[in-house]
Design a protein around this nucleic acid. Structure first.
Lengths: 197, 197
DNA sequence: CCCTTATTTTGAATTCAATTCATTTTTCTG
DNA sequence: CAGAAAAATGAATTGAATTCAAAATAAGGG
């Protein structure tokens, strides 16, 4: 039938994965919540891994689009990078279930582990390098840093902070403050030295 | 018996985990390679997770000690931090099996996921914040950055680079170059602004 | 409408590996 | 060396992912 049996399963999987974690989530539970038989799940997805990867790829779409919009809201590369950092951590705060899925659970999928990082993830990372390259062209960012390395370094930093936040039961950590600190470190770190006036 | 049945199992587990990955590794194989029965494994370790965590905690010991030695080799906080970065990535290069275990497979253990990060890991991270605090006291590092955040941000950056290296089949990535780039970004980022002379 | 064929769905049966535990083997003690 | 304690074994249990023969549903075609 047309009206999204696949969608139902995906929605259910997000909930169950978020509640129980990828590993403890039972395919049978997902099927039950979706209102289908276990076997049906395997009609739409190869296996549990594939289910997780599919969620990832699907959920990344709006996230990437949001981020692009957020970035284009401001004019300069410096502001764009700040916007990226802040917005990324805001997302972690606002959609903790999804964040947990993407940051923590995803790493448990063997497909992810085995090198297939997914198109959408790469696309997300490339937003960083694009901003950086733009800044280099305008002369505001240093030329002795490679965009490919920078994008990983910045993402790694953000991801570590996010993971830490997601895992810590008591949400004492102030993500907004973290965003500010990261911006400080990186913007100073990558900007061309001020001309001595 | 005294002569390390536990040790044998640990050694075997390192090999099998590295070869097959945590998830695909079979406890039976580990037992076979160690020359014991499956059941024996469960006499020394609670379960597969515990085996992984134990490897981690045990292998971290020499790594931390090495790192401490390496750091103490140089006098200034700036050089210490550079040493940390370089040495961390050198380790990744020299012990890829272990690196893969620690970076990638470890994240698949549900115990790790569920917040128990392990004492040794925290100790390793704290090496960073200690260096940084020392630098702050000496006035060479900025005071508007929190050591707790910096240690995560720097580790996250290193870890992302490492993971990427570990996963990429073709070892084209030059870790030494990455170390240099990371040093540049961070040292500029966290140092107190040069006095205009 | 009814029959036939194709498509979708089902859930019981299979499979695979982690974990358990009654039994056996080894070590220790007096 | 007997008997008790400790350590080790591996066949049996368990739990969950995955499969697949059978049932339900949809789609045509006359």
């Amino acid at each position: 039938m047309r009206l999204g049996k696949r969608e139902k399963i995906l929605k259910a999987a997000v909930k169950i994965f978020a509640r129980d974690g990828f590993f403890n989530a039972k395919v049978e539970e997902i099927a039950r919540l979706a209102g289908v038989a276990v076997g049906t799940t395997y009609l739409y997805f190869e296996n549990k891994d594939d289910l997780l990867i599919s969620i990832f790829e699907e959920e990344m779409l709006p996230i990437i689009n949001n981020m692009k919009r957020e970035i284009e809201r401001v004019p300069t590369p410096v502001e764009k990078l700040k916007a990226f950092i802040t917005h990324h951590l805001e997302m972690v705060k606002n959609k903790p279930d999804m964040a947990q899925l993407l940051e923590v659970e995803l790493r448990q999928s063997s497909k992810f582990i085995r090198g297939y990082t997914g198109t959408k993830f790469r696309e997300y990372l490339n937003l960083i390098s694009q901003i950086f390259e733009e800044g280099q062209q305008q002369g505001v960012f240093r030329h002795d840093i490679k965009p490919t390395i920078l994008k990983q370094v910045l993402f790694g930093a953000l991801d570590q902070i996010s993971t830490n936040y997601t895992l810590s039961r008591s949400k004492k950590i102030d993500l907004l403050e973290s965003a500010d600190q990261i911006s400080r470190i990186f913007l100073t770190g990558i900007s061309t030295p001020n001309q001595p006036r």
